[in-house]
Simulated assay, not measured.
Amino acid sequence: MDFIDIACPYCGETIQLAVDGSAGDQRYVEDCQVCCRPIEVSVDLDADGGLHVRGRDGDDA
């Protein structure tokens, strides 16, 4: 399990996500620990096994 810090796309606060890199690429919704709004989380693994985590609000295109 990896712990990744991201900025909430709504309130801008830094939150920590627990990410299981062994599960491969993932898409899920997790509520912000500060403002409780739903963040769409994308987890992608690169060819070297590095994690790339992005959080976005539901209004992002």
Score class of each variant (00 low, 15 high):
D44T: 13
G21A: 12
I4H: 04
T14S: 12
D59A: 15
I15V: 13
C11F: 09
P9A: 09
D25K: 11
Q26K: 05
C32R: 00
G49Y: 07
D5R: 13
E13T: 07
D57W: 03
S42D: 11
V19N: 00
C35L: 08
L45C: 09
D31K: 07
E40F: 06
Y28D: 00
D31Q: 06
R56M: 12
A23N: 06
I39M: 04
G24E: 01
A7N: 15
R54N: 08
V43R: 01
Y28M: 08
P9D: 09
D31V: 01
D44L: 15
V29F: 03
G24K: 06
G24T: 02
L45R: 10
D5L: 14
S22W: 00
R56E: 11
C8P: 11
C36P: 04
A23W: 00
G49P: 10
Q26S: 04
C35I: 09
G12C: 10
C8M: 12
D57P: 01
D57N: 15
Q16Y: 00
P38W: 05
Q33F: 02
D60Y: 13
E30I: 03
D59K: 14
D46Y: 05
C32G: 02
L51N: 05
Y10I: 12
G58Y: 05
Y28W: 05
R37Q: 15
A18S: 09
C11S: 08
D20S: 08
E40V: 15
M1Q: 03
F3A: 06
H52Q: 12
Q26M: 08
H52T: 14
F3T: 12
D48Y: 05
L45G: 01
P9T: 07
H52D: 11
G24S: 01
V41D: 03
C32F: 05
T14I: 15
S42K: 10
G55H: 03
C35T: 04
V19F: 05
G50T: 06
D44H: 12
E30C: 04
V41Y: 03
D59S: 15
Q33D: 13
V34F: 10
S22N: 08
I15T: 04
M1E: 03
E13C: 08
F3W: 02
D25Y: 02
G58I: 06
V34K: 04
V43L: 15
G58H: 10
V41F: 05
E30Y: 01
Q33G: 02
G12S: 06
A18M: 09
D59Y: 10
T14P: 01
G49R: 06
V29W: 01
C11T: 07
D48S: 14
